[in-house]
Write a protein that binds this DNA or RNA. Structure first.
Length: 273
DNA sequence: TTCCAGGCGTATC
DNA sequence: GATACGCATGGA
């Protein structure tokens, strides 16, 4: 990791990292673009403003310390993983190769487990701007992203201000199962992927897709492969016989390139051929 | 007005 | 196990 201290900021040199592509690609929902090359957001309740020095691989993490850089942000931004190497691996496959060239600065964010689980419960049959709105209202109400402990008194009625529709009762069930110990997030972290999937899906409102997103973004299980309406189109269009071998073990990372590629590229919205 | 969105629960076969 | 349908909300 290549960084230096600059006054109260940290300057980070980091290839394969684009703020728009990483922070606004539907994996995390509370990063806000606050300037031309600047985003403000948080991991847990530790806020951060990060900006890119105009199209270079130089990033400024405002008002942070080398300790936080080492202990928090390096992990959150997945800086120990060589995405150049991953993209080289993916370039064996024609479609993935294009997706990586289209948006080569995507990284997987290693998010908080509860935030990922609850965020993706909210995400179901929903669109990204509205998901952000609901999560924004939740965080505004709590002064930061609430833990499940913070939410133990909530009911579908008290969550009405979120305007999250039928999803409110699912959040209540998730809070209930976790706070009563029926679901143990630390335990899930240690399970094999099949058991982890099964355990998460005992929560109401958590099916295959939400479980995969929770495992990928909340537990950094890179073999998890979330299939939503967009990735379903990817599979039908380019991978009718399944994923190529070059993604083995990191299916979830490949998924994020493919998801972003098809979702933000209007030319690809024609499903035929 | 109708359709759709990082899906899932339920009923029915 | 597969398939059909309803679901809250809001933007297009």
């Amino acid at each position: 990791m290549d960084y230096t201290k600059d006054g109260s900021d940290i300057l980070l040199r980091q290839p394969d990292f684009d703020l728009d592509e990483t922070l606004d690609c539907g994996q995390a929902f509370r990063w806000e673009k606050t300037g031309e090359n600047t985003y403000s957001g948080a991991f847990l309740n530790r806020p951060l403003t990060i900006s890119c020095e105009n199209g270079t691989d130089l990033f400024r993490l405002h008002n942070t310390t080398p300790e936080d850089m080492e202990n928090i942000w390096a992990d959150y931004f997945d800086l120990s993983v060589d995405y150049g190497e991953l993209k080289k691996r993916f370039s064996e496959d024609e479609t993935l190769s294009k997706a990586c060239r289209y948006a080569g600065g995507i990284r997987i964010l290693r998010q908080d487990r509860w935030e990922a689980l609850s965020s993706f419960i909210i995400s179901q049959n929903n669109n990204i701007p509205r998901i952000k709105g609901i999560i924004g209202r939740l965080c505004e109400n709590y002064g930061g992203y609430p833990s499940y402990t913070d939410m133990t008194e909530e009911t579908a009625d008290t969550l009405g201000y979120l305007r999250s529709g039928f999803r409110a009762k699912y959040l209540v069930d998730a809070v209930s199962k976790i706070s009563r110990g029926e679901i143990n997030l630390d335990g899930i972290a240690k399970m094999n992927i099949a058991d982890a999937r099964k355990a998460l899906q005992t929560i109401k409102g958590v099916g295959p897709k939400v479980a995969e997103c929770t495992l990928l973004f909340g537990f950094y299980r890179t073999e998890a492969f979330p299939v939503d309406v967009w990735v379903k189109r990817v599979m039908e269009k380019w991978y009718p016989d399944g994923l190529p071998d070059c993604v083995k073990g990191v299916e979830g990372i490949a998924q994020q390139y493919l998801f972003h590629y098809i979702r933000t590229n209007p030319e690809l919205h024609d499903v035929n051929i």
